[in-house]
């Protein structure tokens, strides 16, 4: 069974969220990064964009697909991972580290609390793999 980092929480659409001091960092889980194929381009939001939960401010492209990232946390974009412009493949190779996508200054803590814990997400992924 796949292990997912303990310090993160997860959304059903396979984004992970890391709670930082005053903001939340968003990326995709190994489950998503592994199933989508070689990433060729990441379209990032702009800093200071307002993003609602369920918006798709970020798109990950591969040769044959285009995956919308479903934003898990309502707020304002505080930072983006500009490195991905030149090295989109980092999303495949290091999705919890250098392959992060963007950071949001959130307004509603309950959104974070409602996300899945690593244990819950592990079970959820196992149910998908059956």
């Amino acid at each position: 069974m796949t292990k997912f980092p303990e310090n993160l929480k997860y959304a059903k659409s396979h984004e992970w969220v890391q709670k930082l001091d005053d903001r939340f960092r968003v990326g995709v889980s190994t489950f998503a990064a592994g199933s989508m194929g070689d990433v060729t381009f990441v379209e990032l939001p702009e800093v200071e964009d307002d993003v609602d939960a369920e918006d798709s401010p970020c798109v990950i492209e591969t040769v044959k697909s285009s995956e919308d990232i479903i934003n898990p946390i309502t707020g304002t974009v505080a930072a983006i991972n500009g490195e991905l412009e030149d090295t989109p493949e980092t999303v495949n190779s290091d999705c919890y580290g250098d392959g992060w996508l963007y950071e949001v200054k959130g307004t509603d803590a309950s959104e974070y609390d409602a996300l899945m814990t690593p244990e819950e997400y592990t079970k959820y992924v196992a149910s998908l793999e059956d």
Partner: peptide, 12 residues
């Protein structure tokens, strides 16, 4: 760059 196109992105 076909990920822009209708056969992949459909309504988007």
């Amino acid at each position: 760059l076909a990920a822009r196109e209708q056969h992949i992105k459909r309504e988007k």
